[in-house]
Design a protein around this nucleic acid. Structure first.
Lengths: 104, 104
DNA sequence: TTTATTGGTAAGTCATGACTTACGGTAATA
DNA sequence: TATTACCGTAAGTCATGACTTACCAATAAA
């Protein structure tokens, strides 16, 4: 279950703040830490988790590392949501289609 | 931030199992607990969190309570995902549209 | 090469939360 | 009414995880 990490990553408010900051433009760790209420190591640890969940990407820029949004992780969440509704509609359809005969 | 509770709720694998079980049909607490590796009180506590996140609804059925999927919570997640992409596209558009003049 | 900037990691603390058993309260049944 | 099923909550335990400071590696500048 690959989206397990993703939901876990999105469960933390600080990590969501990081993602929401990265919506507007890619940022380095220092830039992110400066506008957040936690320390730089904390941000670094969060970024590690976000990276493993494929919610962000890293590209080294000299001495600093630039982080950007990664579409992949968010797409998986969307797929999970879609699957929830597919199955739900299936169940509804089965409910509508049910007939007294042929229920083996 | 209303989706805070929702992401928190979805972060737990047991709660996701509950939701995925409810995709197919509404179920009582006992039915859910029977097909899960945790105790009934644990399921009950999870359902409380899912209910507060508007991911499930409850309807009393005599002595038992029937839980069903609630579209509302999942829709909010979808809206959050959409907002991420809207802003991301905005940023991309701003990047493409940028010209040497008029950058005040 | 020395010095400063950037950032990842280690180690430790502390809060939170995911379980358990025990209990009480309500609705169906005998 | 007495009994049985169903379920929510209280209390307590234990693991996890979100922080901190301290340290180390790598790049950029003096």
């Amino acid at each position: 279950m690959t989206y397990g990490n993703i939901f876990l990553a999105l469960g933390d408010p600080t990590r969501r703040s990081v993602l929401e900051a990265l919506r507007h433009q890619p940022m380095t760790v220092g830039m992110l830490a400066k506008q957040m209420p936690v320390s730089r190591p904390a941000v670094s640890q969060h970024l590690k988790i976000l990276k493993e969940a494929e919610l962000v990407t890293v590209t080294p820029k000299g001495a600093s590392n630039e982080y950007a949004l990664n579409r992949k992780g968010l797409d998986e969440i969307r797929a999970w949501l879609d699957s929830m509704w597919d199955d739900s509609l299936e169940a509804f359809k089965a409910h509508v289609d049910q007939k007294p005969e042929n229920n083996n």
